[in-house]
Design a protein around this nucleic acid. Structure first.
Lengths: 216, 216
DNA sequence: CGATTATTGTGTACGGTGTCCACAATGGCA
DNA sequence: TGCCATTGTGGACACCGTACACAATAATCG
């Protein structure tokens, strides 16, 4: 029954086999997520974009949730890349100054990404951490091998090493810093701060980072 | 055609009119949201609970999104109530001490609610602020007339009045404090901190509040 | 090499959802 | 008392996720 080639059946694609359907579905899902967030990641639509029957997806993902988890992991990796890019820009010299600049860079990169790609950002955090795919980052197309969380932890370590932060305060500090930055990002997309413009954002981020540094 | 009473048609309900369907749907939606978050707020299921045909909902809500927005508003009001309850517990005396205790109470109430009612909490923030229903709070069954955001702003004002915070720092400070608390709540439900127990939570909250006070 | 088997994609089908339409029952008002 | 706006009903449609059986290909093994 399946496209027995009887007559006028236009095949979806030249070859029966796709080549790399898994990747194609992931890319399609990412496009959808970018456009309109996690709820827009629709299985049937993804297969349509890949030029394949709906059920083909089940050869690569257990269900819609699994696809979404994969897309989410990719989005998280994209966030990590954005942060690393911002870190790479830091030119400040002198240990303390540099460490502080790098902490700020993490915050800026984080918030910038959230504003530039709200759909991906929301998708990254739409999957509870205990269900996130544990696939290796490279598989998800990530440049960075570290999670955003780990990147933040790294800059805090630098802060301690530079003597800009008491060692005693270090354990668990990443949770506090993360809270502040993540919360700000949420307020900036869809929250009370959604109307703030680019320069306003920069100001708030600076103030927030200041608060974190002093407060930690 | 509609239940012409011809024969064995068991009517859904004694009377044709419902009485207060809007409220019934809102309650049903809230129950669903409490159970499993915003995506569980399903129109048909809500009408089923209310003992009414699916389309009856459209006499009270434009579409599913409108129902969700109303439920979201109710959830936000519940959060405000939780915070007010925590504020009411504060016994500290002396202006500064009291102001600080009240700031802490806001944070504790906020986080407690997020942990106790993750479904409602997520639902409260699932609707972008620009689409939130502007219905008056009383209509949503709220005790408090203020939003969580306004409650936080109030305690910051008290902090300034008590001389525990420089006036110059006040403008916009609620955004920073809010960021921190909201971000922490997110990490606690579904994020890296989801496994922390009650006492652990108290510790983190205290530390976070400390950071905010010092940092602001 | 050729036959067998594992993998991957297809069609069909089912229950569930949101929403549109025309119609029926009711309550309030003239 | 009779009309009419309001509120609920049933049917229909398109879309979604997913289960099942089957077909087309690639890989493997004799």
């Amino acid at each position: 029954m399946a496209g027995t080639g009887v007559a006028g059946m236009t095949p979806r694609r030249a070859t029966y086999r796709h080549g790399d359907l898994r990747r194609a579905l992931l890319d399609a899902g990412t496009t959808l997520a970018r456009r309109a967030g996690p709820e827009a990641v629709v299985l049937r639509e993804a297969t349509r974009m890949a030029g394949v029957a709906p059920n083909a997806a089940y050869r690569h993902f257990a269900d819609r949730q699994a696809l979404l988890a994969a897309v989410s992991a990719a989005a998280m990796a994209a966030l990590a890349d954005a942060i690393e890019a911002e870190l790479a820009e830091v030119k400040a010299s002198g240990p303390k100054r540099r460490a502080r600049a790098r902490l700020r860079a993490v915050g800026v990169g984080y918030v910038r990404f959230a504003r530039a790609e709200p759909g991906l950002f929301r998708t990254a955090f739409s999957v509870p951490a205990d269900m996130a795919t544990a696939t290796d980052p490279a598989k998800a197309g990530a440049t960075s091998l570290l999670t955003p969380f780990q990147l933040l932890g790294g800059t805090l370590d630098e802060l301690v090493a530079a003597g800009a932060m008491p060692v005693a305060r270090r354990p668990g500090a990443e949770f506090l810093a993360w809270s502040a930055v993540h919360g700000l990002a949420m307020l900036l997309i869809g929250g009370p701060l959604r109307a703030v413009d680019e320069t306003g954002v920069a100001a708030v981020v600076d103030r927030l980072v200041g608060m974190v540094e002093r407060g930690l």
